[in-house]
Design a protein around this nucleic acid. Structure first.
Length: 476
RNA sequence: GACCCCUUCGUCUAGAGGUUAGGACACCACUCUUUCAAGGUGGAGACACGAGUUCAAUUCUCGUAGGGGUCGCCA
């Protein structure tokens, strides 16, 4: 990179094709582009590559917007829809044609597939054989609409100075004359990206490794148009847990699916950031630190596997760090779904009080609301199987006697509650567990819950005594 | 098949000629303890293989093997 370029404002872009949801791979690409732009105090642009009108959908465009919003990756300026530049792209193709840097090709799809068959049979790379490159257009069939192909260099090599992969050399003989304009006159992706990256002033194209070969062809096109290609950074792909490519039919989920699983956006970003990028031993990295630290040369070159365990663990950490108010609003939709109705606002303080205790016990928002569900249940509680076993006649008797002690309590604070319950256990020579577990079962209907005194405080005196009363009432 | 890229614990990675090869997740044990977690302590666990270069290679070079990607009038 020369000095002029260093002084230029960095412009990155995320350029997804709207043919499906935004999955983790795309999300990471977007994150890296965003981080690099913010780090360099440059611009992060968003371009929707919808030149394949047959496959692009409105819903997919929306899904991409939603996904980026969830991840909090805001772009600068207006969104560019690639299809809107079709006319200019087509004009560029004609300009190349007139300059003798492109030519018309009248091959039919059938001829092309024959060519591929033959190349395969001969063990060659399946390339277009350039049969119309120097052929007289007068020989053109009249019943075939031509495409415009790029007259690519035949000899020598094209070098992509990749910021992640290093210098990648491709022999020009390995690249064929790509189609610039389809027979219906519409531009192809290859032409459109080059034109748009140039027009948008993109200085750094950070994208998936699967575009590496394309980078060589795009470099040739840039040069033919008299433009300078952007700096490229091809980041390794994300693989599934089994090492195979992560695809829509193989483990790749929409980022929205992770949101529904109760993953926090911050955790997702932190996880994605550490997939292929590192800053010595740092693991928990805030957005602010990431912006400060993010450099392209710290991106690894080998593909990484997607590890849900790791994401979950990170998510647990972010949940514990989350601010209560924020967490509460994040929890709300999950709670409504679990309860199959809006939670009673009058009961929300219970959740709020139990939040600190709930935080250490969940790896995602779903687990969290499940652990908190008992706070919102109607009494008498329906006990689960093991809770029923714990509340045998003996335990019910204990609860009944404990209830009498608790009713006498003047204050309903952790200290006094603990004193009372422990005192009660001591007085009968009972181990704490003998009292706590029946208490837990009575109060929550389950055998697993946050600390029992936290539970009692969250439920409040009246509700707690009521629930214990339900159990005590069984003692005949 | 051709071309391109990759290769450190099971996974994500640190490392950039000389380290007891470090951290994180997961795993195991212990601890804390009213359950479950969280926390704390400790443990097991890796430089794919083969040649070179060098006094010295995980680190540099070249092969081999394995993995991945690309070869559309898709993007």
């Amino acid at each position: 990179m020369n000095g002029d370029q260093e002084r230029m404002t960095v412009v990155t872009r995320f350029a997804p094709s709207p043919t499906g949801f935004l999955h983790v791979g795309g999300a990471r690409t977007a994150l890296f582009n965003w981080l690099y732009a913010r780090h360099a105090k440059g611009k992060f642009l968003l371009r929707i590559e919808d030149t394949d009108r047959a496959r692009s959908t409105e819903e997919a465009v929306q899904a991409i917007f939603d996904g980026l919003e969830w991840l909090d990756l805001s772009h600068d300026g207006e969104v560019v829809f690639q299809s809107e530049g079709a006319e200019r792209h087509a004009a560029l193709a004609h300009q190349l044609l007139e300059a003798g840097k492109a030519y018309r090709c009248w091959c039919t799809p059938e001829e092309l597939s024959e060519m591929r068959e033959q190349a395969r049979a001969e063990g060659q790379r399946m390339l277009y054989d350039r049969r119309w490159r120097d052929r007289d257009p007068a020989e053109a069939p009249t019943d075939v609409a031509p495409v415009i192909r790029f007259k690519a260099p035949v000899e020598g090599e094209t070098v992509v100075e990749d910021l992640v992969q290093g210098a990648v050399r491709v022999a020009n003989a390995q690249l064929d004359d790509m189609i610039l304009l389809r027979s219906d006159g519409t531009p192809t992706y290859m032409l459109s990206v080059v034109a748009d990256d140039h027009d948008m002033g993109v200085t750094h194209a950070i994208r998936g490794d699967d575009h590496l070969t394309n980078a060589a062809r795009q470099t040739q096109l840039f040069l033919a148009l008299g433009w300078q290609p952007p700096a490229y950074a091809h980041i390794p792909l994300i693989h599934g847990a089994d090492g195979a490519k992560l695809s829509k039919r193989h483990g790749a989920l929409a980022v929205s699916a992770y949101a529904e699983m109760g993953i926090l956006a911050e955790a997702m970003c932190n996880y994605l950031l550490r997939l292929g990028w590192s800053h010595s031993d740092d693991e928990i990295i805030s957005r602010q630190q990431a912006v400060e630290w993010f450099e392209l040369d710290a991106i690894g070159r080998s593909p990484a596997r997607f590890d849900m365990e790791r994401l979950s663990s990170l998510n647990g950490i972010y949940i514990r760090q989350a601010e209560d108010g924020e967490l509460l609003s994040l929890l709300n939709p999950h709670l409504s779904r679990l309860l199959e109705q809006e939670p009673d606002p009058a009961l929300m303080p219970r959740l709020e009080r139990l939040l600190p205790s709930l935080k250490t016990r969940a790896k995602n928002l779903i687990e969290m609301v499940e652990n908190a569900q008992f706070l919102f249940l109607q009494t008498p509680l329906v006990l689960d199987e093991i809770a029923v076993k714990i509340l045998n006649p003996e335990s019910q008797e204990i609860i009944s006697e404990l209830l009498i002690e608790l009713e006498k309590l003047g204050s309903w604070e952790e200290e006094s509650l603990e004193l009372a319950v422990r005192g009660f256990a001591d007085s009968r020579s009972l181990k704490m567990g003998k009292v706590a577990q029946p208490l837990r079962a009575s109060l929550t209907g389950k055998t697993v819950s946050p600390g029992i005194f936290d539970v009692m405080i969250a439920l409040g005196r009246e509700e707690s005594l009521g629930r214990l009363g339900d159990i005590a009432a069984r003692v005949s």
